[in-house]
Nucleic acid binder design. Structure first.
Lengths: 135, 135
DNA sequence: ATTAACCTTATCGTTAAGGTGAAAGTAGGA
DNA sequence: TCCTACTTTCACCTTAACGATAAGGTTAAT
């Protein structure tokens, strides 16, 4: 059991951020002392990291709130399960389209790098032939 | 040549958004009339779409500003070229790590879907055998 | 028992990415 | 010419995701 400052440090976030996440309903402390101190275990660390990952790839905390539970507890009733299933599918599609997007960007970047590199080589060769000055 | 409202419509954004992008230095109108009216051509449409794509995958407009030019004009001096090259590489690495992240999420989602689905089937079979009630 | 280093809630501030509306100038079709 | 539907700048408003600071309680080692 870690106090808030400790997991904050381990997770590389501030305590403010953790309390904010809690306020949004992203998770709750593993337990709360009578004096109000929050205590967490390693599980929370995993959750925090997942949240950060999802943020990095463009999800808002609200969106994350909607999906974060899907990863971390699956004891549900039948109706809930079918709803969850739908949600997972939609989320999966969204992710797939993002991957596609990123791959496109990646491809163009690679082409740019190629062409930039070869133009650089050309320029340098030209520079070696004549005394080299302009450009 | 389109007026601002027209490409806005074509791009699926508001005119405010376009002026805001311009203000941030993401692009300039293809030309500006003496009365202040902005006019754009199809090239701008491509740029806008690229910006939106990059936003979708988690880049801020400031970050986008830094890279957007790399796609759309490559007449530069040698020093500039080498700097650009570095930037492209860094950007590429970032994108690669995002793709990796998304693929991880995707994998876990698929597993979740699998297990959720099979548990659903189990529950339904159970429901068929006995009169079915709880869960 | 004191003290440094934690923790609590509460509130105000900040940045990004626009939305919204005012007041005024234009375009172009009837 | 006139009217409607644009367009301009300016300024204030909003939401998300925290940062910063205040004012006070707690812990644990000395």
């Amino acid at each position: 059991m870690f106090k808030i400052g400790e997991i904050a440090k381990q997770a590389g976030v501030t305590t403010r951020t953790l309390r904010y996440y809690e306020q949004l309903g992203l998770f709750v402390p593993s337990n709360v002392n009578t004096n109000g101190y929050r205590y967490y275990n390693d599980d929370t660390l995993v959750v925090i990291n997942r949240i950060r990952d999802l943020q990095r790839v463009g999800l808002s905390l609200e969106e994350i709130k909607d999906v974060i539970g899907l990863y971390f507890h699956q004891k549900k009733k039948v109706e809930a399960k079918e709803k969850t299933l739908n949600y997972l599918q939609v989320h999966l599609n969204d992710i797939d389209s993002k991957i596609t997007l990123l791959n496109n960007v990646k491809k163009e970047l690679k082409e740019q790098i190629q062409s930039t590199q070869s133009r650089l080589v050309q320029l340098k060769e030209k520079g070696r032939k004549n005394g080299g000055s302009k450009n």
